[in-house]
Amino acid sequence: MAKSCAIVVRVFDGEAPYLQSFIDHHRSIGIDQFYPVIAPRGAPLCREILSRNQLGFTEVEGQKIGAVRGLIKEDYVAVIDADEYLHPDLLPFIQEEAFQSLAMPWRMTATLSDSGFESGLKRFFDFPQIKSVMRTRSLTGLGLHRSGTRGRGRCLGLSEGLAFPIHHYYLRGLDDLMLKEGGVVKRTLAQSTGRKSVALGEGSTAHQLAAFPSRHARVAFLLRVLDHLPEQKDPYAVSTDQVMLNRLREQMSVDLNSVKAELRQSINSIYGVFRKRSIHNQIKDIEKILADKPSKISYQKRVLRQLRSDYKIRQSWPSRLLNRVGIDRHVLPG
């Protein structure tokens, strides 16, 4: 008898322009059921999309995904975000293998271009942050990255999960960043780590930074890494719902161009702190981890640790001198 598979996903209206693409992809690879989690009275546009697709949802304060655990009837379940796409080969693997849980790494990509999400060519960076798929009957709880399980089933780690990376469209353009972090669409998760303020300290160089959202640092780091990697064909068909995007824009009482320019400048100022040598070493280090015995690594901690290290180096007088003469100065391509 064929095994069934479901996904649990939190949704808010900032995802409305991309939610249909997410649904279409997962239906195309054989996902049997969706369990969206929405804040009470929140995400009206996403509710429309779910209704159009004949999908129900669960309302819960704080979008606590544990609220849907008792609803899941399918054999396996994965908890992912709406910017993460499961690998098509995962479903055949579930049919062929018996396992309790499987950890899968991120295959990350990002762009500041509002048309970049739909481009057939992208750069990708494999990173050992994990998402998991679990056998439902073994669950003791649901987690965003790793869920609690019980029993003696096979718990497969990243070594096995490398064959099924989660495609993580980390940033789908400045529109996406504006919706996530520009304060335009109200987030349910007010304490989201993406909005946590970060500051690197005082200084007198061109790299002096005011407080900025941690997401901006993570995006800047990824864009810097992707600059060193080759373009590849994106195996998934992804799209932006322009009607939903325009409806969100119509609700905004801000100058869109001004907001996007400020966001780009924030990313650019952080992007310029990362040193070429540091980024090269980061790529090599992650490749070594993935090729050896990969284990989960915190993406945010790694990014901020490298940012602080490079900032400190750029504050030294030799680095300031090089900056004055235009050496080792990096900005985002136009």
Rank of each mutant, 00 (worst) to 15 (best):
R314G: 04
S21C: 07
R275G: 04
M108E: 06
R247G: 02
E287D: 10
V331F: 14
K276D: 15
S159I: 08
S319N: 07
A199W: 15
K301P: 01
F127T: 00
G66L: 09
G201K: 13
E262P: 01
M178I: 04
G153F: 03
G203T: 14
H26G: 03
G272M: 05
T188A: 15
F212Y: 15
S159V: 08
R69L: 13
D227V: 02
E262V: 12
R314I: 03
T205P: 02
Y170F: 15
L102D: 02
F127A: 03
D89A: 15
E250C: 05
L229V: 04
Q95H: 03
L156A: 06
R195P: 00
S309G: 06
R320Y: 07
F212P: 00
L248N: 00
W317A: 07
K276E: 15
H207T: 01
M244P: 00
A190V: 09
L71F: 04
A210R: 11
A210K: 11
S197W: 12
V185Q: 09
R302W: 05
I49K: 03
Q129R: 03
Q315M: 12
L90M: 10
K312H: 07
G203C: 10
A6S: 15
A291M: 03
M1E: 07
G151E: 09
N257D: 12
A6T: 02
A6C: 01
H228C: 09
R10I: 11
Y299G: 01
L71D: 06
M108I: 02
G148Q: 05
L45Q: 05
P105K: 05
P230G: 13
R314C: 09
I267T: 13
R154Q: 12
D176E: 01
E96I: 06
A43F: 02
S204E: 15
S115A: 12
Q129K: 06
E74R: 01
Q33R: 13
R187K: 10
G183L: 09
F34W: 02
P230T: 10
R302L: 10
D89M: 15
R314E: 10
S132P: 01
G62S: 08
V68H: 04
F57C: 08
Q100A: 14
A110F: 05
I289F: 06
N53W: 13
A39V: 08
N53P: 00
L304P: 01
H26A: 00
G42I: 00
M178A: 08
L223T: 11
H207W: 11
P318Y: 05
D83G: 11
G141N: 14
R27Q: 15
Y169C: 09
L142G: 13
P92A: 14
P165W: 08
D328T: 09
I327K: 14
H26W: 02
L332A: 06
M178F: 12
V77G: 06
I283R: 09
I327R: 14
P230S: 08
D241P: 00
S138P: 13
T205H: 07
F125R: 11
L50F: 07
R224Y: 04
A43N: 06
S21F: 00
V238S: 02
W317M: 05
F12M: 10
D175V: 04
A43P: 07
Q63R: 14
H167T: 14
F125N: 04
E262F: 08
A98F: 10
W317I: 10
E74A: 09
W317V: 11
K284L: 07
N257P: 08
A82H: 00
R275A: 08
L156M: 14
R135E: 12
A2L: 04
K196E: 15
E287F: 01
